[in-house]
Write a protein that binds this DNA or RNA. Structure first.
Length: 208
DNA sequence: ATTGAGATTTACT
DNA sequence: GTAAATCTCAATG
């Protein structure tokens, strides 16, 4: 079974098969320990929920390509596109351990502990040197490669991280016992930092 | 260990 | 204007 055939399923089917697999780009290889499934227009937490835009166009394309998005004004995150054309189902690469190119990864990440090099989706993307320039990369022939491993004998699932919509579906998948698995964070109800506040008047945020 | 603010794009109301 | 598939740093328990 080829990589493309494996990836032609829905993200919820493909996600556990990516655990233990290796992504390689720009001189760094990472063994995946944690991923999340995002479905198409019916998944309210998916970028595809409100249809195709310039940003998420790759998600609507063929399986086996990389969808890289920019968010929070500073972070990149990477997904493996699955399913059929137009289905817009993809798997977010949440965390992993660096298995090659340790020196390069350390240079990009500037962190104390090696276990933090790719612990979290934006950290993983940074360790691999991924930006929007890599959006749409073919994972079979391109500058970013995906190599599958034996599917894990055991894995665990739970709610997706930072997602407030569809919080009941356990579409986060990880390898138990791996130190590189990112800590679970429930979605922030009211992100601060963008709300305009005047310190001269009363409590910072009365809506709590 | 946990909490909170800041960084500041993309997309929607 | 507000929220988001996030991370870092500083302050606090």
């Amino acid at each position: 079974m080829t990589l493309r055939e494996v990836l032609s399923g829905r993200s919820t089917e493909v996600a556990p098969l990516l655990l233990g697999a290796t992504v390689a780009a720009n001189g760094v290889s990472i063994r995946l320990t944690e991923v999340e499934a995002y479905e198409g227009p019916d998944d309210p937490a998916s970028h595809a929920y409100r249809g195709q835009t310039a940003r998420n166009a790759t998600m609507f394309g063929p399986a086996g390509h990389l969808y890289v998005y920019f968010t929070y004004g500073m972070h990149h995150c990477a997904n493996v596109v699955c399913g059929e054309v137009g289905q817009a189902t993809a798997v977010l690469l949440r965390a992993g351990e660096v298995t090659a190119g340790l020196e390069v990864a350390r240079e990009r990440r500037r962190t104390e502990r090696d276990v933090d090099l790719a612990r979290g989706p934006a950290r993983l993307a940074q360790a691999l040197g991924l930006t929007r320039d890599f959006d749409g990369t073919d994972l079979v022939t391109g500058a970013v490669r995906l190599v599958l491993a034996e599917p894990p004998a055991v894995f665990e699932t739970g709610p997706r991280v930072g997602v407030s919509k569809a919080a009941e579906v356990p579409w986060r998948y990880w390898l138990p016992g791996e130190r590189s698995v990112s800590p679970y964070r429930a979605a922030v109800v009211r992100p601060r930092g963008t709300a305009r506040r005047d310190p001269r008047f009363g409590a910072p945020d009365a809506r709590l």
